[in-house]
Structure formats: structure tokens, C-alpha cells
């Protein structure tokens, strides 16, 4: 139980109003544990992004309870939710969302800067984080001069430089080729296994299931049966694997 970083219980979320009302989540239970890389898979409109937003403290559930590192999020206001994100969560976005005018090192350092860590020590930690993703030689490069895979690696370095307890990644490989996608997933696996973090990857991408410790499927706002990674991998067609 102590290994649980994010614990979501009976999560329900209603989006829209009146005739446009949609039950995006209908009683979801999910726990993210440290040292474990979890894949959240499901078709478009299944509720996976809504669940990610709730787990990432950007959206509050209509019902149910979420705790992040033991802190309940249900009564928190926007600033308190931002503080929880700042203290415990690192994000990796599908479109990287790097700052185009800042170098790779500065992009990473921003994650420390918003936490009040400035100066040389923050710069050194940022360079170290870039080295961990193999980009120490690109520290002074602007995002525009980096490939998609390199940009995503910068985004990952930014996500874990402040040593968060959990990393939430939204489709981190969807815009990448096979080699880049594999490199990204290896970094995320290392973040989970070697650095004892909880990692949740939301994805459509069947090529990355081999990296998962655990695969969670969601459909119509309900978690389908959770499957052990081995059985899921066996179910995948060969063509879906990376070459």
C-alpha cells in the first residue's frame, strides 16, 4: 500500500450539460505504484485523457476520491492543485510543449525554476538530466533545431529533473519513428525501474506495450479487465510491433 503514489477510487466525471452531457468516467478505480510503468490504452473517446487529467490534478472528478502521495485533491483549489503537480508530478506531453525561445537546458531548468530552484545548481541538475536522456551535447540547442525524438527527450528530462514521484505521459511516442519511440520508452522504463517512480503512459500506440509492467484498458469510461503485460503482448498482432 505504501508503494501507491496516486490512488483513484470510484472516479466519475460528467462533461457538458443538458442534452450534451456525457459520462466520461463511470466509477474508475486505479492505483499507480512506484517502480511500475503502467500503460493506459483505449480508443478515442474512451475517457483516457479525462482520467489522465484527473490523475494529473488538472480536472476534478464529479465524484470519487483521488490522493496524490497521500494528499486528497477533492477540496483543493486551482493553486493547491498546481502545488500538488509541482511537488509530485512530472508531465510529458504529446506535442512536447517546449518553449521555442529557450535552449534545451533552459527548457529543462524551467521545471526547477517554477519550484524555486535557481542558479548554477539548477543549471547543473538540468545538464545532468539532459545527459541522462543522451542530450548533453544539445544543451544549448533551441527546440527548432532538434528532431522530434530529441525534443521529446528534452521534455522527459524536464519531467523528471525535479525528481517527481510520478510521471504522466500523454502519447509520448505517437509522433515519433520506431527508433525514437523505443528510445523514449526505454527512458521512461528506466525512470520507473531504476528511479523508483510511478509512470503512467496514455497511448494508442500498440508498439510500446512490450515496455509496460502493467496495461490498463479503458472503454466507455470504465476500466476493462487489467491484463498482465505478458498476456497482452501475446494478444498483439506481429505487425503492430516495432521493427
Amino acid at each position: 500500500m505504501n508503494d501507491i503514489i496516486i490512488d483513484a477510487r470510484e472516479i466519475r466525471k460528467t462533461l457538458g450539460k443538458g442534452a450534451g452531457e456525457v459520462q466520461a468516467l463511470r466509477g474508475v478505480d486505479l492505483a499507480l505504484r512506484k517502480g511500475e510503468l503502467t500503460l493506459l490504452m483505449g480508443p478515442s473517446g474512451s475517457g483516457k485523457t479525462t482520467l489522465l487529467l484527473i490523475l494529473g490534478c488538472m480536472l476534478t472528478p464529479s465524484a470519487g476520491r483521488v490522493t496524490v502521495c497521500g494528499t486528497a485533491t477533492s477540496d483543493a483549489d486551482k493553486e493547491a492543485l498546481a502545488r500538488i503537480r509541482r511537488d509530485h508530478i512530472g508531465f510529458v506531453f504529446q506535442s512536447y510543449h517546449l518553449f521555442p525561445t529557450m535552449t534545451a537546458r533552459q527548457n529543462v531548468q524551467l521545471a526547477l525554476d517554477i519550484r524555486g530552484h535557481h542558479g548554477r545548481d539548477a543549471a547543473r541538475k538540468s545538464r545532468d538530466a539532459l545527459a541522462l536522456v543522451g542530450l548533453d551535447q544539445k544543451a544549448k540547442s533551441l527546440p527548432d533545431s532538434l528532431s522530434g525524438g530529441e525534443q521529446q527527450r528534452v521534455a522527459i528530462a524536464r519531467a523528471f529533473v525535479a525528481n517527481p514521484s510520478v510521471i504522466l505521459a500523454d502519447e509520448p511516442t505517437s509522433a515519433l519513428d520506431g527508433d525514437s519511440g523505443r528510445a523514449i520508452m526505454r527512458i521512461l522504463v528506466d525512470a520507473a525501474h531504476k528511479r523508483d517512480r510511478a509512470v503512467l503512459v496514455v497511448t494508442h500506440d500498440p508498439r510500446i506495450v512490450s515496455f509496460a509492467d502493467r496495461i490498463v484498458r479503458i472503454e466507455d469510461g470504465v476500466l476493462a479487465d487489467e491484463q498482465a503485460d505478458e498476456s497482452e503482448r501475446r494478444r498483439l498482432p506481429k505487425a503492430a510491433s516495432w521493427p
Binding site: A82, R83, R86, D87, F91, A111, I114
Partner: peptide, 13 residues
Amino acid sequence: SEFATLRAMGSSN
């Protein structure tokens, strides 16, 4: 979008 990214990362207002 950059300010939203900062906010998503947990930056204070």
C-alpha cells in the same frame, strides 16, 4: 500555450 504549459507543470500564477 507556453503559459498553459507552465501552469500544467505546476507553476504558480
